[in-house]
Every structure is written in C-alpha cells, then in structure tokens.
C-alpha cells in the first residue's frame, strides 16, 4: 500500500527540496522503495540536489503528456538502488501539467513504490495544487519565522480543502517539519520558539532540522545530507523523521549544536 506524500510550505526557500531529498533518501536507506517527484516545473531543482542533473532525458511533463513512458523518465539513484527520481522539466511551465495526466502518473507510481514523495513548488497556484492533489499525507516545511508560519497555515487550510481526499470527506495526515532551526538564535529569542509554532499550526511535529553547514554543503554537492554525512545532527533528525513517517513514536529532541573545543575557541571569524 503506497503512501503519496507531498512536501509543501507555501513560502519559498524554506527547505522543501532539500527535505524531499533527505527524507526520500532516509526512507530508501531504511529499505523502502521510494520515488521523489519534482513538481516544480520550470524551476526544477530536485535533480541537482539529488545529483542526477546530467542523467535527465525525459521528465514529468513528457510522461504526463504521453510522450514518454514512466520507466523511461525514472532515474534510479546510483548510491541507493531503492531510490528513484522523476525530474521536472526546466523548459516548460506549470500550465503543461494536466489534472488527468498527473492523476494517471501518480496512479502508476503507486503501483511501483512504497513512497511517492512530491516536491511541491512554492506558492498556492496550479503547480502546488496539483502536487498536493493526490496526497495521502503532507509534510509542511516551516522555518521558525512569522512569514513562513503564516504561509504554512494557509497551505494546511488548502490541504484540508483542495485535495482529492479532503473532497471525499477524508482527512489527510499533516506533519510539521521545522527546518533551518538555529539553536543560538532561538536561545536569544530572535526566532519563534517551537511551542509557538506548534500552537499556531496545531499539527503534529515530525522533526526539527537545525540550520547546518552540512545541509548546505550536501545540497551543493548533489548528495542528500542523509547520504553525504549520515552522522551529522541534521541527518539524524531526518532519519528520525523518516521513522516517524513510518509510524514509529519517537520523542522529538530540540537540537543543540554541539561544538568541539576548537569550535568553541574559534567559533566565529572576525569581520575583516
């Protein structure tokens, strides 16, 4: 029984694509068959973050429009063989996605994989609506900033109203993934704290991912952080989030950056 999961946020730049790649890889590393689908037609990024940008031949639009078969467009990851990518098109725009075509592709993916993870574009327009349309569950990626929280709230309302499940009167599972969490800034009260975000959004917490060099480096190298630095703090948080998605109950820990002695001595470089 496949689960279609949409990774969404409303706001851009909060870490949807990074989290899609890291969660997808984490689930695949736990033995699940996973496909990550890039719905950001026209501004595709997931192929870069997954390190597959030179292997893209056919894309989601080709499959939706019937120009290519699904197996032709799927790119299997070279590091984890249960992980696949369905890339977006960079040359088309979101108008090329049809509702019937997306429904058909998601239906086919459901038969091949345990997890179909849809990386939603930012915004609340057509692309984002189609990405969430067939979801069974949603990961709402939120930064502890007021603008991000309000946009996430808007998206949660749409998940409860505009998805196929919601229109049938069912509820879709919604999980909050708090990303780019900066323990130092949180301690100084410069960010919304976790309790505030949870109180405002009132959906269960899937995990807290600290702002980290490891994540930024991983994205630029085309290696999801759960593959590139599996022992780092953010990778561990993604692994735990993946286990929670699979139904395990784990206590969420608020990450505190652990620095070595040298890190504490030479923590910040002075501005020249």
């Amino acid at each position: 029984m496949a689960t279609v999961l949409v990774v969404t946020s409303g706001k851009g730049g909060v870490g949807k694509t990074t989290s899609t790649a890291a969660l997808g890889a984490a689930l695949a590393q736990q033995g699940q068959h996973v496909v990550v689908v890039d719905f950001d037609v026209g501004l595709r990024n997931l192929d870069l973050v997954m390190g597959a940008e030179r292997r893209v031949v056919f894309d989601l639009i080709n499959v939706v429009q019937g120009d290519a078969k699904l197996p032709q467009a799927l790119i299997r990851d070279k590091r984890i063989d249960t992980l696949s990518l369905l890339p977006a098109s960079q040359t088309r725009d979101k108008e090329a996605l049809t509702a019937e075509g997306v429904a058909r592709v998601i239906g086919e993916l459901r038969e091949k994989f345990d997890w179909v993870i849809c990386d939603s574009p930012a915004g609340i327009e057509r692309g984002a609506m189609l990405a969430m349309r067939h979801a069974d569950a949603a990961v709402v990626v939120t930064n502890p900033e007021v603008s991000s929280v309000r946009d996430s709230d808007r998206i949660i309302g749409m998940l409860d109203a505009k998805t196929a499940k919601a229109e049938k009167g069912e509820r879709i599972d919604k999980h909050l993934l708090l990303t780019r969490y900066d323990p130092a800034r949180a301690a100084r009260g410069e960010m919304l704290n976790t309790e505030d975000v949870l109180e405002i959004l009132s959906i269960p917490l899937l995990g807290i991912i600290p702002e980290s060099e490891d994540v930024l480096r991983a994205s630029n190298l085309g290696t999801p952080v759960t593959i590139g630095s599996p022992n780092s703090v953010p990778a561990k948080a993604y692994f735990e989030a993946a286990r929670r998605l699979r139904g395990e109950t784990l206590v969420v820990t608020v990450p505190a950056e652990r620095r070595g002695l040298m890190g504490r001595l030479f923590g910040r470089r002075a501005v020249a």
């Binding site: 609340i124 309000r150 946009d151 709230d153 808007r154 309302g157 749409m158 409860d160 009132s202």
Partner: peptide, 8 residues
C-alpha cells in the same frame, strides 16, 4: 471545531 487557517 477546528482552527481557522490563514486565508480562510
């Protein structure tokens, strides 16, 4: 009996 979300 549920939260009223942003935009609603």
């Amino acid at each position: 009996d549920q939260p009223v979300r942003s935009g609603q």
